[in-house]
């Protein structure tokens, strides 16, 4: 290689890594995380400070590029789960059971997300969303929800036919939204009941 190209080549390498790496890592960070300050309860994850001025720079950046309307602290707190209890991703080919209690809240809603959007089929007859008023409970207030693409007895949450999905449980009017981690919170467990047609 002629000597004259040595320095431009080095500069080109440095610039390519700087711009490529910088932009890629930023896009990745905005895609992969909503910021720090999550509360994780089992498979569930929530960001109680994401809508406040106290949110960290990553949360603010994510908020600015996602442009979603977040819940205020007196409104509620949204928990999202993309994995089950064992840490395996939620897949529509499997059936799951959500069992247990929610943290104290006046009301809650549960629905599924696929590709960042709520699963809302055109037919409108499937139970794609459940709420605390409409479900059946055990004597102690605990509930059991069957999460499957096919109809199930009891509380049934219909999910998409294929692909991965996420569950979103929104607690409305809950002290958990203002929690600093001092309240003992427990979220319902997500158990995998088996995959395929077995």
């Amino acid at each position: 290689m002629p000597f004259v190209f040595r320095v431009p080549l080095l500069v080109a390498i440095a610039l390519a890594i700087a711009f490529g790496g910088g932009i890629w890592s930023t896009l990745w960070a905005l895609e992969a995380t909503t910021g720090f300050g999550a509360i994780r309860l089992g498979a569930w994850e929530a960001f109680p400070d994401a809508q406040t001025a106290k949110a960290d720079p990553y949360a603010k950046s994510h908020r600015a590029s996602a442009g979603a309307l977040l819940y205020g602290s007196a409104e509620g707190l949204s928990f999202t789960a993309g994995v089950d209890e064992t840490g395996a991703p939620l897949r529509a080919a499997c059936s799951y059971r959500i069992i247990g209690h929610t943290p104290p809240a006046r009301l809650w809603t549960l629905y599924t997300l696929q590709g960042g959007r709520a699963y809302r089929p055109q037919t409108g007859v499937l139970p794609v969303a459940l709420n605390s008023r409409s479900i059946l409970r055990h004597g102690d207030g605990a509930f059991e929800i069957a999460v499957a693409a096919d109809a199930q007895p009891g509380n049934w949450l219909a999910i998409p036919q294929d692909g991965r999905f996420r569950l979103r449980l929104t607690l409305l009017d809950t002290p958990a939204a203002g929690s600093s981690g001092l309240i003992d919170l427990s979220m319902p467990a997500i158990q995998n009941l088996g995959c395929g047609n077995a």
Binding site: I13, A14, A18
Partner: peptide, 20 residues
Amino acid sequence: AVLTGLFGAALLHLVIILSL
């Protein structure tokens, strides 16, 4: 050159995140 590039990438990352 690679180290300079990585340093620049980290800097750019922070600038984008903070100014977005």
